[in-house]
Design a protein around this nucleic acid. Structure first.
Length: 711
DNA sequence: GATAGGGTTGTTTTT
DNA sequence: CAACCCTATC
């Protein structure tokens, strides 16, 4: 089912996983499958608390489920139960936090039921919104071939809007394009006015001066999006929400979707909540089940608000409330530490996870290292040691607060020949050369995509911003810009007075001509192979490591073979990004088959688990991030991030705190993170030297020491 | 007026 | 290391 495409020649490579789509269909009759499945023994598979839930699926339900409590399992069995009771698959909507999570649940269902339950609406808010919007684009006055912009594109468009609105005179007294985009985002996702957001998140700016100007910038931004057929991530939600105000369509949707299940409810924001409320309340039965854990809410920066959990009880006063409190994942020592940490948060519902597993007789370690170099060495050494003790690499993970915390660790793993995989931040699809290739597909799908065009103009030597926007202006109202631009007379006729450098225009025509025969109906891999040829020269002149980058493009082309149309390909890339990309580095041949060690941001590690977890950079200015200073809510969110990291560990947990960390100029002294300091005897403090001096007897030593400590 | 190139800056977390 | 700003050059 999942195909992996890899290239072998170099040390560094990209692996793409392929997910086929998860669609529900509104019009299609999907058949109840009650007779077709083997019966499932629910009692055998679920505990008392979990059974209570799946035996009572009706009306509004709120499930508070702690970390490692079998939340996914419960949801999966709940869906199975619905299917077995005769509910057609396409009457069920399963909202998950990533599309990968949706995929996994569907796969589990498939195993459980012996057949794939076809037609369930499963996926993220954004991907589901996209499905509806493609279908009802006309109703909403949208171009059906709209392009979904990623963060970088949206920021770029915002920048253009700012230039148009001429914010330059305000300079540093005005937000950057990135800030502006975030202000707009907060305002949409949290249902707040621009003014409120400024006061809330950006009080350093003079609200009176920037508010009015920002409104103008946003208006231009909106106009550009509409003219070019571009949607940003927020638009997907906004338009879906608007669609649900269209009485006829909304009623049709609600008639179809009769059961809503929302996973990770603590990370939904205002507009997402509004969407599910609308669908749920349109149905007389109001079958909506939300599952969440306020302690694991870590997406406030995206507008998420775990108060939604509290509000849910108010909105649906007849809602049934359930808790799953048994933790199957972690040994009690790790769970104690997690409970011990989260209790310092004031804004939270009291809850304590109960351990099912028996004691490991070993407390989690706080390892003090002299500096971040030493920290990297410690992790690499300990990983090797544990591998000798029988832990597989893939059962261990290093989880960090920010992407760049992994740099030194990666280097150390490389020199020690330890295979690893990084799952972090801006990676593959944000890279300049990948974007450069993809914009060529974008202009075939949507020829008025200004952001895409401006990237293409930038590639051509001799053309820049000024010429680019002049050319773009010229074809806003033409049918086929690509044809127009490559026609002989275009520059002589249309661009007569524009003073476009003739070398640039010639190069542009030469660059674009090979693309003319293609359309958006074409297979993406075919077009990409043409694009790669076009870009080779540019790569060679612009980048030292052009060979590597060329390999990236080839990997992309191979991966694109999974898609028959450019649209499906581009959609998948923008909506399934983090699920798709995984960067793998391998060294040496002796472990060719070995599954790698995982390095991941904590945010990306949500919902996952490993036998051994390392958490580096537990210093006061890195974790909690120094940016939260003085903001109690933000500090508590940081603590929840720490809580999420800790609760990923099953058997062993290492908290690492370097005393010196290299920064822009020289080394800086660091203090141990308050998240560790505030722990009350639930962690065993040691230093990396202890691990070094007695390599083989380490556990004995630790056990002895812990024997005293453990009372 | 526009572009290319050099130097400087700074980096949370993601659909 | 890549995005940004400033300046020399076409």
């Amino acid at each position: 089912m999942n195909k992996n495409y890899t290239k072998d020649s170099s040390e560094e490579k990209f692996v793409f996983e392929f997910y086929d789509d998860l669609d529900g269909e509104l019009d299609e009759k999907s058949i109840p499958l009650v007779d077709k499945y083997n019966a499932i023994d629910f009692e055998e598979n679920l505990n008392e608390e979990q059974l209570q839930i799946i035996n009572n699926i009706k009306g509004p339900m709120l499930v508070i489920a702690g970390a490692g409590s079998g939340k996914t399992r419960t949801i999966t069995f709940a869906v199975a139960k619905l299917l077995l009771s005769g509910i057609p698959p396409n009457n069920i909507m399963l909202v998950t936090f990533t599309n990968k999570a949706a995929k996994e649940m569907i796969n589990r269902l498939k195993k459980l039921l012996g057949r794939k339950p076809k037609g369930i609406w499963a996926g993220t808010f954004h991907s589901m919104a996209n499905r509806f919007l493609r279908k009802y684009a006309k109703t909403l006055d949208l171009k059906p071939n709209y392009t979904i912009m990623d963060q970088t594109d949206a920021k770029g468009l915002m920048k253009l809007a700012m230039e148009e609105a001429d914010t330059s005179e305000l300079k540093e007294r005005f937000p950057t394009s990135a800030m502006a985009k975030r202000i707009l985002s907060y305002s949409i996702n949290c249902n707040k006015s621009i003014r409120e957001v400024i006061l809330w998140k950006y009080p350093q700016f003079d609200k009176d001066i920037i508010e009015k100007k920002l409104e103008e910038v946003f208006k231009r931004y909106r106009t550009k999006k509409e003219r070019d057929g571009l949607l940003d991530f927020d638009d997907l939600l906004v338009y879906w929400n608007r669609l649900l105000d269209e009485k006829l369509i909304a009623r049709m949707i609600a008639r179809n979707i009769r059961y809503i299940l929302v996973d990770e409810y603590q990370d939904t924001n205002y507009i997402q909540d509004e969407i599910i409320n609308k669908i749920a309340t349109l149905n007389t039965q109001r079958n909506i089940m939300v599952v969440g854990d306020d302690a694991q809410s870590i997406y406030a920066f995206r507008g998420a608000d775990f108060q939604n959990i509290l509000n849910f009880e108010k909105k649906f006063s007849d809602c049934k409330k359930f808790r799953i409190t048994y933790n199957y994942r972690s040994v009690p020592e790790i769970l104690n530490l997690a409970n011990d940490s989260i209790k310092h948060n004031k804004r939270q519902y009291k809850k304590k996870m109960k351990a099912v597993r028996s004691s490991s007789e070993m407390k989690p370690f706080l390892v003090n290292t002299s500096d971040d170099e030493e920290q990297a060495k410690f992790i690499a050494n300990q990983v090797l040691k544990l591998r000798e003790e029988g832990f597989q690499l893939k059962q261990m993970a290093v989880l960090f607060r920010a992407s760049h915390h992994s740099i030194k660790i990666e280097q150390e793993l490389k020199t020690k020949n330890i295979p690893y995989e990084v799952r972090a931040g801006v990676a593959f699809f944000e890279k300049a050369h990948i974007k450069d290739a993809l914009v060529h597909l974008r202009i075939l799908e949507n020829p008025y995509d200004e952001i895409a065009w401006s990237r293409i103009f930038d590639i051509i030597p001799g053309l820049g911003m000024a010429s680019g926007s002049k050319i773009f202006q010229e074809f806003v109202n033409t049918k086929n810009p690509l044809k127009l631009i490559t026609s002989k007379e275009f520059f002589a006729k249309n661009m007569k007075g524009a003073r476009i450098p003739s070398a640039g225009s010639k190069k542009l025509i030469a660059h674009l001509t090979p693309l003319v025969p293609y359309s958006s109906e074409e297979a993406p891999s075919e077009v990409l192979s043409v694009v790669i040829k076009l870009l080779t020269e540019h790569l060679q002149t612009s980048y030292e490591n052009w060979k590597e980058r060329l390999e990236d493009l080839k990997a992309l082309a191979i991966y694109s073979q999974n898609y028959t149309t450019i649209r499906r390909f581009l959609e998948t890339l923008s909506l399934n990004r983090s699920d798709l990309e995984s960067k793998t580095v391998k060294k040496g041949n002796q472990h060719e088959e070995e599954k790698p060690l995982i390095l991941s941001t904590i945010h990306r590690a949500k919902g996952l688990e490993w036998r051994v977890v390392f958490i580096p950079m537990l210093c006061e200015s890195f974790f909690p991030s120094h940016q939260v200073l003085g903001d109690q809510d933000a500090l508590e969110e940081e603590r929840r991030v720490f809580y999420v990291a800790v609760t990923r560990a099953k058997d062993q947990l290492y908290l690492i705190s370097p005393a010196l960390v290299q920064s822009w100029k020289g080394y800086r002294t660091e203090y141990t993170s308050q998240f560790v300091q505030e722990l009350n005897h639930t962690v065993y403090t040691t230093s990396s030297v202890d691990f070094k001096s007695k390599p083989s007897s380490r556990f004995q030593t630790a056990d002895q020491l812990l024997g005293k400590n453990n009372k």
